[in-house]
Design a protein around this nucleic acid. Sequence first.
RNA 1: GCCUGGGUGGCGAAAUUGGUAGACGCGCCGGAUUCAAAAUCCGGUUCCUUCACGGGAGUGUCGGUUCGACUCCGACCCCAGGUACCA
Length: 821
Amino acid sequence: MNAVYDPKAVESAAQAHWEARDTFRATESGAGEKYYCLAMFPYPSGNLHMGHVRCYTLGDVINRYHRLKGFNVMQPMGWDAFGLPAENAAIKRGIPPASWTRDNIDYMRGQMQSLGFGIDWHREFATCDPDYYHWEQWLFVKLYEKGLVYRKNSVVNWDPVDQTVLANEQVENGRGWRSGAVVERREMAQWFLKITDYAQELLEELDRLDGWPESVKSMQRNWIGRSEGVEIDFAVTPAPGVESESLTVYTTRPDTLLGATYVAVASQHPLAIAAAAQDPAVADFVEECKRNTTAEADMAAMEKAGIATAIEVIHPLTGEALPVWVANFVLMEYGSGAVMSVPGHDQRDWEFARKYDIPIKQVIEPIDDADCDLDQAAFTAHGRLVNSGGFSGLDFDAGFDAVAQALADNDQGRRVTNYRLRDWGVSRQRYWGCPIPMIHCEKCGVVPVPEADLPVVLPTEVQFDGVRSPLTTMESFLNVPCPKCGAPARRETDTFDTFMESSWYFARFACPDANAPMVDERVNYWAPVDHYVGGIEHAILHLLYARFYFKLMRDAELVDADEPFTNLLMLGMVLQGGKKMSKSSGDAGDPQKLLDKYGADTVRTAMMFAAPPDQSVEWSEAGLEGALRFLKRLWNLTHDYAAKGIFADLDVDGLSAAGRDLRRKSFATLARADDDYGRRKQFNTVVSAVMELCNNISKFEPANDADRGVAIEALRHAVLVISPIAPHIAHHLWAELGMSEELVGYPWPAVEADALVQDQVQMVVQVNGKVRGKIQVAAGSAQDEVLAQAKSEPNVARFIDGKTIRKEIVVPDKLVNIVVG
RNA sequence: GCCUGGGUGGCGAAAUUGGUAGACGCGCCGGAUUCAAAAUCCGGUUCCUUCACGGGAGUGUCGGUUCGACUCCGACCCCAGGUACCA
């Protein structure tokens, strides 16, 4: 054995060993219970950043730990290969997105391999492989036939100079990031998936996802946003250009209906358009509203503004005429694009009413002594109805019911369950994505591409002349005979949202070479994913779409399970110099330099040691020296003991007192690490536990051969426990410690209860909750014995002498608190 | 704005069920080794106070519950993630 730790040599030897044995290839016939361990696959941006290192190291730690626990583990890897950055590279540097992406994949695969991740590379694929997206197109057509796909207009960010649609991210302060032109809202026909049909199931199943963090479930619940309310019809007073006779709004507060003093509609609402046709001021306002982005955060941050129209509606209960306003904060996408406004009891309506001098009417009063001054703010809590005719005096629930009933009796309203969740718009006006398998025929309308003609392959030999998708001008792609009538027709040129690819890749990993539609029977061996690891930034969109997609696949009888991910670990962000290191930021730290300088084990250990997984970390090189020092120490300790000979049999009875202490620490470390790895998923404390054990071993002075044996046992525990985190050095030291069996998958040792027994314990003595002394007692001592010893402790006695003892609390083997007055 | 997290020494953090706040590591200080340095090893390291024993304060802020609060409750401040076309 070399006296000096040489990470490069150790790591390449271990990696060669695993590769030669194909250690991480997973099969359905493997021994043990199946365990599907998955980390969110990366976008191939060019090189790994520290966020990737963290995510995939965590995944690998879980993978290797479960192998030690006897599971048949499958850990695959692939590439989320479609997306914007490839197009940007193409536009900027003239490299076709396909070759740019393939080059990135090759480089990043090499980086992952040098990090020693235990991945089954036989399952690798990229989402831009036609063999993969073929099945996405196939399912889309099936869903179209089932009525779960439809086309409707929706708003996009339009760059009038570049003549292209911009992603929200490409809009900076209302301007296109390349052209600098003021972005406009523009309506376009787009494809949608009916995720709202699954809203209730997506909500209910959250209650059964015990392996998910509560915070993520909470975010998804709020995103789905189920609410119980009432739809109310307001009759529209006839006016020039107004076609509709009634205006429907949704409210969760029908109890406040008598306090409605106006109605507000979105700027794209038919009433707004009608009003704009009659009134240039309204037209100007509607035009002004087009110069907002489509991002909800921007909408919420902007100054609330509106304009009155000449149109009026009739209050369904009072018959009173209420003005219709056009307001910039009403979303056309949500509900009916119109809201009733009750400034007395809704803060946003209150502010709007104050700004435009609209009457504020109190119809709710507090039941308790809560503050209620409508000159200061709206009163938004539930309360008792007042100034509401026959409804006055009712509380929230009774008022809700009575108003809903009154509306229903007149056929002017109905109780409804509403969801905040909107259908999933999957069309993107971009080149580098999966082509949407639809054909537009002048005679037949929209016709899906027949199954036999799938996949619609994305042409990869393309030239970017500007920012528009090359597909829109590529005649060889565009022209196609209509599958129905044979007449010349044109292909859809939009591609899918890349969330489509990432919504089912985990299922394909179970059977990456399946020729059956999408997946074959192997999927039901591996799915659902037992442990899914990924960034917290995916807590809502990706995870919700993937859950939805899996249910679509279930309903197409492709998979058996209801939910795709049994356990979920959400990672905090990796920050560097205060900057977010997302997949989209190109300037993220390159771990290659660190790998070259320190080796994979040190980088992995430092990353795991930096913080618990769910916390964000500010990454710096500072921790690397410490991690390397620790691995060197483990190396040197092992070397020292191995040089003096390995003791195969442990003579427990021959141990010195210090030997018994070391053995207790050794097994306590095993137990603690098992709990941290398995239950708590907190790996920084695993590293510190092994550090502590190593400190104990190096301080330990063996008194005899039994003691030397216990040190060897402790070193084996240290090596085994650290092996999921630093697998290469562990692989090497394991052999040095006389272990001939493979470390990967070696059975995790059972904790010997006898080894943990402790005769003496230290107890803390408090007086009035302040620590005044410490006492040594036999473990399990009786309360009065403990109290007597506590009171005789000099510093404790000092604080209780001459005082009346009011209370005595004893927490067995831990603490005594004496309360004096 | 809204939803979800987070805030503990000079720094990264630990404290698992309400029971010794600061384990472990970085950095720094002192020492050993060395011609010298690096590396390594040993000791110290929350702040204030004390020769010392000890004492006081302390987990974003303010308040509450409790024998006892980083932990539970209420209000607030700040930071991060998401906000439907970044992935």
